[in-house]
């Protein structure tokens, strides 16, 4: 997936609490070492940050101000085709998930999620 061994990851969510929670879980012992490359609170910030930090993994909310998650995925995959994106969203309908996957996301996790659910989803992504 990447030339260097240590994976980097970006967290995109308009809720700071969710961003913090994901960051804390990623830092825990379950996952291999992952660098948090950046946190973004909206889609535009996420695209900028992704261009600079070129993360291997991204967790992505869908309902966000400025640029929504779907458009954001499309833009990022355009210049980072190898990056794995996990959609973490409360929008639980299939059409949304299918659209996100079609645009390049690699996984889908419904909010609210437990610690295990997030870790499992990330592990599946890294495999």
């Amino acid at each position: 997936m990447s030339l260097h061994n240590i994976l980097s990851m970006m967290i995109v969510d308009d809720s700071m609490i969710i961003r913090n929670r994901i960051a804390r879980l990623v830092a825990g012992p379950t996952l291999p070492h992952i660098n948090i490359a950046g946190l973004a609170a909206n889609g535009e910030m996420a695209v900028e940050l992704a261009r600079d930090s070129r993360p291997d993994l991204i967790t992505m909310d869908l309902t966000m101000p400025l640029l929504d998650g779907e458009a954001c995925i499309e833009r990022i995959i355009d210049f980072l085709p190898e990056t794995k994106i996990l959609v973490v969203s409360a929008l639980a309908d299939k059409a949304t998930a299918l659209r996100a996957i079609k645009k390049g996301a690699s996984g889908f996790l419904h909010k609210p999620f437990t610690d295990e659910e997030l870790l499992d989803s990330l592990l599946e992504l890294i495999d």
Binding site: A97, F108, E124
Partner: peptide, 27 residues
């Protein structure tokens, strides 16, 4: 169209079964 996308995903061997199960639009 949703079915076409979904079938494409089903033929993608990298797609996780668990993910696919949630996505079937032909219900």
């Amino acid at each position: 169209e949703a079915a076409r996308d979904y079938i494409d995903l089903l033929f993608n061997k990298k797609m996780k079964q668990s993910l696919l199960e949630q996505l079937n639009p032909l219900v």
